[in-house]
């Protein structure tokens, strides 16, 4: 059943998601190729609207009509896009989990934290426990254990609490508990820290790292903050306007970015380690996804653009394995 221990757990080829609108077709995800290895942490960075979240929602079959998804997504050898709705549903939550940016919005305000955890267990538990109503006492213990593991004190009592009685950080922890209660093999954490205070951000990221070690799962960490990703991820994928523009080991990408967009992103972000450095904002803004430039999507903002950039640019792999979507020879050097 397994595709081998060494193969990628998630393998994406030519993923494309488009939405027909009255003003034309919006290509939100434009040909994504990506592998996530077992127990790896992959960071995905990009500005708002670059297609980070849509990419992963597309893989999980969660793009609403009229959105159309094409390409190939294999999870543990199984084709996710060709799967029936029921089969995919079995997989979601049990083997593939996702947490959302704002836990306040993503937790049901009318259900206690406990019943939200139990619901996940009930949906994926053994056939006998899949009751629509009522609950299994054995699963209550599991829910308490999970809440304790994500660092919620007095978990047994807080099981009965509602989301509005939790603080922001606690809500994020509770949402992680819900996602991880079935021991998934891949966690997609969509901007887990964006809605939190800086002091709590580090705690939540540490928690995700700890759970990754304990459960031996892979993590995809979606963020718009390079600093968050740099510290916690093995590899980084940088997205721009629906495409991956640079992919490589985290340290290498941060230290020596090769794509002009990655360079601009790093130059425009403040780093505590070097406060004397001057911040350079990137000129221009993310292009309208409806009439995308035919060539390199970044060309209109690129300081190095040439006529050759007006033709479609493919992802190129350098000798050291790093991948860059740029025609300049030094990018692949």
């Amino acid at each position: 059943m397994s595709a081998g221990r060494d193969g990628p757990i998630l393998s994406v080829r030519g993923l494309r998601t488009e939405f027909p609108t009255t003003r034309g077709r919006v290509v939100a995800v434009d040909g994504i190729d990506l592998d996530v290895m077992p127990a790896e942490c992959l960071g995905v960075v990009g500005e708002s609207g670059s297609g980070k979240s849509v990419t992963f929602l597309s893989m999980l079959g969660m793009v609403r009509l009229p959105g159309r998804v094409s390409g190939e997504v294999r999870f543990d050898g199984r084709d996710l896009l060709g799967m029936g709705a029921r089969e995919l549903r079995e997989l979601r939550g049990r083997e593939l989990a996702i947490t959302f940016q704002d836990a306040q919005m993503a937790l049901n305000p009318s259900l206690s934290i406990g019943s939200q955890i139990l619901e996940t267990l009930a949906a994926h538990g053994p056939a006998g426990s899949r009751r629509l109503f009522g609950r299994d006492p054995g699963q209550v213990g599991r829910a308490i254990e999970m809440l304790t593991r994500v660092g919620i004190p007095a978990a047994a009592e807080r099981l009965r609490d509602y989301p509005h009685q939790f603080s922001g950080g606690m809500r994020q922890r509770a949402m992680i508990a819900i996602a991880l209660v079935c021991n998934p093999r891949l966690l997609i954490a969509d901007e887990p820290t964006s809605a939190l205070d800086v002091t709590v951000q580090a705690q939540v990221l540490d928690l995700i790292a700890k759970m990754r070690r304990e459960l031996g799962m892979s993590v995809v960490l979606i963020a718009h903050d390079l600093g968050v990703v740099a510290e916690h991820c093995d590899r980084i994928a940088v997205m721009y306007a629906g495409q991956i523009v640079e992919l490589g080991p985290a340290e290498a990408v941060i230290e020596a970015p090769r794509h002009p967009y990655t360079q601009g992103l790093i130059a425009s972000a403040p780093w505590l380690s070097d406060l004397t450095r001057e911040l350079r904002p990137m000129p221009g803004s993310v292009p309208n996804l409806i009439d995308m430039p035919e060539g390199c999507h970044f060309a209109p903002r690129c300081p190095f653009r040439s006529d050759a950039c007006l033709r479609p640019v493919a992802m190129r792999t350098a000798a050291d394995g790093r991948q860059v979507r740029c025609i300049r020879p030094e990018a692949v050097a």
Binding site: M62, L91, R92, G93, R94, I98, F100, E119, T120, A123
Partner: peptide, 17 residues
């Protein structure tokens, strides 16, 4: 259209549930 319904789908709950 609330996010928690999307989250429920992501968790693998059936439409009836």
């Amino acid at each position: 259209n609330k996010e928690y319904v999307e989250a429920a789908q992501a968790i693998g709950l059936s439409p009836l549930r």
